[in-house]
Amino acid sequence: MSADPPKARRPTIYDVAKEAGVSHQTVAMVLRGQGKFRPETLKRVSAAIETLRYRPNNAARALATSSANRIGALVFELTEVGPSKTVQGASLRAAEAGYLLEIVSLPLDEHLREQMGDSGAIGRALGLLDRADVAGILAFAPVDPLLATRAATPDAAFGPVSVPLVMELEPDPAHGRTLSDRGMSLVADHLVGLGHTRIAYLGGSVTWVAARRRSEAVRGALARHGLEVTTELTGDWSAASGAQAVRDLGRPALEEVTAIICGNDQMALGALLALDEHGIDVPGQMSVTGFDGIPESGFLRPPLTTVKVDYASHGRRLVETLLNRLGQPAELTTADDTEFLARASTAPPGRLRS
């Protein structure tokens, strides 16, 4: 018995735009009856629609009647610093554009991880957001099943959903690199500038695509200086996991490195405690850096060298990227959202505290 032929992909406004030789923004405006276009442009768009048998989906029809007043937000681990502040910034920018940000949050507990093996939980979450009143969807800190589905589908049509989707880990159109790339480059430049060549990395759980991307950013930043990560440790973003990872490594292995780059400030806090338990002086025998720039980072002992990230600005830019895909031109926020804060937890290797 032969298998059923694969279902043909439904044409999108991107396909119509290519067929008509115009931008997708033009097609979107024509569908909504907005703007003034030359008769020949309208004729080409109409002909492309007929040739491709394009039919607007529910969200497109809602846009045409101005009833799509929501932006969907798929969020994992909303309690973490980065995702929560990014969503706050996105919510404010969406409101400025006349949209309500509707959030569906999925905690990455063990039960959900098992469900996500076939993308079932994510598919159901996306289904909640794929409605006529939702113009587009943002995915914050996405996980593997979401990326795998996106990679297999065209830019405008995302598997089970029929509206444009922007994922946080896509290249930043305003700066050309991700937050991790920019931030970890600042960290690597600082440590190498101090003279460190044997550097460990303490990263988050591999369940997070963001954790793997941050690890890749560290390796890439060190590679530009001709260095490699000497030792790589894994936590789960929490202070407790950072402390445990450093404890498990043990003093002999720690003596092989002179600096530890931590994937976030919480794990750095735990690492500082574990190093103190091992009798290793910071920064005299070991330099430690964080990432995020939480307010408490400047009040640790010693105050933590870190990268302060303006996640709110990052969230605003994600909404602006989606608005542009929806054919609603929005100027991208271009302020630098990473700031390196050099503090007392880093020093040249071997320097003793006075």
Rank of each mutant, 00 (worst) to 15 (best):
T231A: 13
P11N: 06
A344F: 10
R38P: 03
H190P: 08
A274C: 06
S185Y: 07
A47F: 03
L63D: 01
D109H: 12
G279E: 00
V309S: 02
A217F: 04
G35H: 09
M116I: 12
H225E: 12
E19C: 03
H111L: 14
G315Y: 06
P348W: 13
L249P: 02
H314I: 05
G193E: 06
M167E: 04
L202F: 05
E80M: 15
R251E: 12
V209M: 15
L352G: 06
L322R: 08
N57Y: 00
L101V: 04
L128Q: 15
K43G: 08
S91D: 14
P252T: 02
P252R: 06
S313P: 01
Y54T: 02
V246L: 06
K36Y: 09
L169F: 08
V134Y: 03
L233E: 11
G159E: 02
T258V: 05
R316T: 11
K85G: 02
E255F: 10
A347T: 05
P171H: 01
R251C: 03
L304R: 08
S241W: 06
E256G: 11
D15L: 07
L128H: 13
P160K: 07
P145R: 10
V229K: 04
A335H: 04
V246I: 13
P173I: 00
V257R: 02
L52F: 10
C262M: 12
L78G: 01
K18F: 00
V319N: 07
S67H: 09
H190E: 15
T197K: 15
G117H: 14
V218I: 13
T346L: 07
E96I: 00
G242Q: 10
L222R: 00
E216I: 03
F37A: 10
L194G: 03
